[in-house]
């Protein structure tokens, strides 16, 4: 059974509906899946999540969460989903414990009743349970917010940019927590602007300017990248980038960590490229074959 079904969903803002935030999006998420919506700020991720959590009415199309329509049966959905909005949503002047108890009561449950579900996460912040939420570090706030969103054992969990502005260590920890939750059978939809997090999802949807560019497993998405990518580096990376982009055999070149990812046109010749670059004065040249990443795919889809 599909846990989330989105069918031609659209949303516009403004007096004349001139700002199109979400444009006829369709995708499905299976039960127990960890599904990522990957896209930069302004792609429409938050509008999409708000429609799915019944906070916004779609202009067109329809969507169902766990079998309930997001417009007609919005009350049912509110009983069974968990939601963590991007803007931070805890009471800063309440303690860790008070926040958790409060959220438990509004969902008609108790912390004890579902403690097994949040235990792994909560034990990490339990030593600070009398501390005010406002005095917690970013990573800990995030753990508390996740605990609060889970306290009623939701069927589907929506996490809108949970890792934005969080450092690399806390991000890693957060994704490990999500993996654990998935094992408990909860369907998780998570949005993120970090492309490197895509690989941690079962399936992903790449989103840009209100549209889904592609949906699939990370492997399927990078598998659709047919061109060869070369990783190139030299002693002068900025000059190298200019040289690469000026070459006829190069489709596209852009920096990618230590190397410049260089998308080659068909029938290219590695030796010719090497000669060309050396001739341009690049030293300590390294050229190697590289596997495309989700970020490479995203950029290719964006530029199409």
């Amino acid at each position: 059974m599909q846990s989330v079904i989105v069918n031609n969903l659209s949303k516009s803002y403004g007096k004349k509906k001139e700002i199109k935030a979400v444009k006829e999006i369709s995708f499905e998420v299976s039960k127990g899946e960890l599904f990522g919506i990957i896209g930069p700020d302004g792609a429409g991720k938050t509008s999409l999540f708000r429609m799915l959590t019944t906070l916004l009415l779609p202009d067109a199309g329809n969507a169902a969460v766990d079998g309930s329509d997001v417009v007609k049966n919005y009350k049912d959905i509110r009983k069974k989903v968990g939601y963590m909005p991007g803007r931070f949503s805890l009471y800063q002047d309440l303690s860790v414990e008070e926040n958790l108890n409060f959220f438990a009561t509004i969902f008609n449950t108790t912390v004890q009743h579902n403690y097994d579900l949040i235990k792994d996460i909560y034990v990490q912040i339990e030593p600070f349970k009398t501390r005010k939420a406002g005095k917690l570090s970013g990573g800990m706030k995030q753990k508390l917010a996740l605990s609060c969103a889970l306290i009623h054992r939701p069927v589907v969990l929506f996490l809108d940019e949970p890792t934005t502005g969080v450092d690399a260590v806390s991000r890693k920890e957060f994704w490990e927590m999500l993996k654990h939750l998935k094992q408990q059978g909860i369907t998780i939809l998570v949005s993120t602007p970090y492309m490197d997090e895509a690989g941690l999802c079962d399936r992903i949807g790449l989103m840009q300017q209100g549209k889904i560019l592609s949906v699939g497993t990370p492997a399927e998405i990078t598998g659709a990248f047919k061109e060869t990518i070369l990783g190139v580096k030299s002693n002068n990376m900025y000059q190298l980038l200019k040289d690469l982009n000026a070459n006829d055999e190069v489709e596209d070149a852009y920096s990618f960590g230590e190397y410049h990812h260089t998308v080659m046109k068909p029938n290219f010749n590695k030796e010719t490229l090497q000669q060309y670059l050396e001739q341009k004065g690049n030293k300590e040249l390294v050229i190697q074959n590289t596997q495309p990443t989700v970020e490479d795919s995203f950029m290719q889809l964006m530029k199409q």
């Binding site: 930069p40 700020d41 602007p193 492309m195 964006m302």
Partner: peptide
């Protein structure tokens, strides 16, 4: 932060 990969470059 939050900028798309092309613009980031």
């Amino acid at each position: 932060g939050g900028v798309d990969p092309v613009t980031r470059r």
